[in-house]
Design a protein around this nucleic acid. Sequence first.
DNA 1: ATCACATATTGGCAATTCTCGATATGACGA
DNA 2: TCGTCATATCGAGAATTGCCAATATGTGAT
Lengths: 93, 93
Amino acid sequence: MFRALSNPARRQMLVWLKEPMCFPGQEPADVEIGVCVSDIQRRSGLGQSTTSQYLAILRQAGLVVATRRGKWTYYRRDEANIARLLETLGDVF
Amino acid sequence: MFRALSNPARRQMLVWLKEPMCFPGQEPADVEIGVCVSDIQRRSGLGQSTTSQYLAILRQAGLVVATRRGKWTYYRRDEANIARLLETLGDVF
DNA sequence: ATCACATATTGGCAATTCTCGATATGACGA
DNA sequence: TCGTCATATCGAGAATTGCCAATATGTGAT
């Protein structure tokens, strides 16, 4: 988790995903499923492969969850797990 | 801060410093000033230079404070700042 | 002034991370 | 089936980190 968040771009992605509606073209109905990779990539300015990898790292750290629908993969925050991690953080440190 | 905590040895040091009395030879009077580098080094098993560098990184991240007394440098947690950082963390993520 | 000791800094090498372009996979439409 | 589009994975080079031994700095005792 610390490794995942030690990168500014990945931290930024996690913050952006708090407001899925701030991505262009997002419909209210999409909020629950998340934001697709290309939208995140466009906003981050990183390459496509880098964006995909970073989201995979965030997923492995349990910070986001991915949902594949058709050709798109949507990412959204794993709020429950994030809350749990923050709580553990407060206990340990 | 995330970079500082992305290393297991540095996280361990921060946790150890929660209980300064657990270091051999610590007197109750020493608790306030902290633990000296050699004690932390012995416990971590890392080299002297590595230990010194890691403590410097923790200090730059605002997680510990250093007090020089004679030839010794004592490190202790910056509890106020740690609490502030954890709070900010909860706000941002 | 000099020695010994605790800590800090430097130089370097191996391992990891960052980031990209190229390529592979998988799904949809014609 | 073929082409296209979204995403994932691979391979690689530059940059950073991990960690050490060697050296430098600062302090107290002689």
